[in-house]
Amino acid sequence: MSEDYEVEFIDRDERDARFVVRDITPAFANGIRRAIVSDVPTLSIDTVRVIENSSVMFDEQISLRLGLVPLTTPDDYDVGETATLALDVEGPDTAYSGDLVSADDRVEPADDNIPIIDLKYPEGADSPQRLEIEAEAVMDHGKSHAKHQGGVAVGYRHLQRIEVVGDAADWEDEPNILRGVIEDDGELVPTESFDHDLSKRYPGKEVEVHDVPNAFVFSIESDGSLPVSDLVLNAVDSLADRADELEQAVQL
């Protein structure tokens, strides 16, 4: 295996990305996937102090919902470090993740529109329902709890190439569905561009689909706590650190 890997982006966004990595083994590709899911630490609410909760949901249910709100994670936080957030909403209103106020401006909900609880002003009640909490978000890994997973949809599949083997028979007009990315004359073509139907890209042709050896298309979606690029780089760094650790241990 070579030291440098060839990486080519197909789609690139803050929240999701798709790229091809060549000259890696399936085991290494899976190592990257697993590192993205479980080895990149992110901030998530871990302790909730309920000051007032006159809503219809138990404190524990609301706390679990708060724990699953993705929070933006600054670079300089280490594992175990905390950030304090607060929420104070009175009915009739819906408490959203965007109502969380943070002591650190850089730590905020990645999405503002996640509903926490619908608060009412019940008929005949003296006062409206109210939720007031303080919460501590802690930096931890995805392997300790799923709420710390920065990558929510992380997968890979082989890059594929198409070989035209002849002409299709006249009566064969069935769609030939393929999902992913194909390599055609050195060019990467997402299958969305031809509606995932090979018979549209190669009309009247009989084709065979082959995996390109040691080339993988990664598809990664972040929950917003980290940009996809940071997620991948941090995952690869963690793999390198673990490899160094193993090397040191073996030498002893």
């Binding site: 998530s44 609410i45 302790t47 102090r49 309920v50 909760n53 404190d59 708060l66 724990g67 709420k147």
Partner: peptide
Amino acid sequence: ERSRDIKEIDVH
């Protein structure tokens, strides 16, 4: 009546 004490919950 709900207690006026602040309740601390670990989110696990």
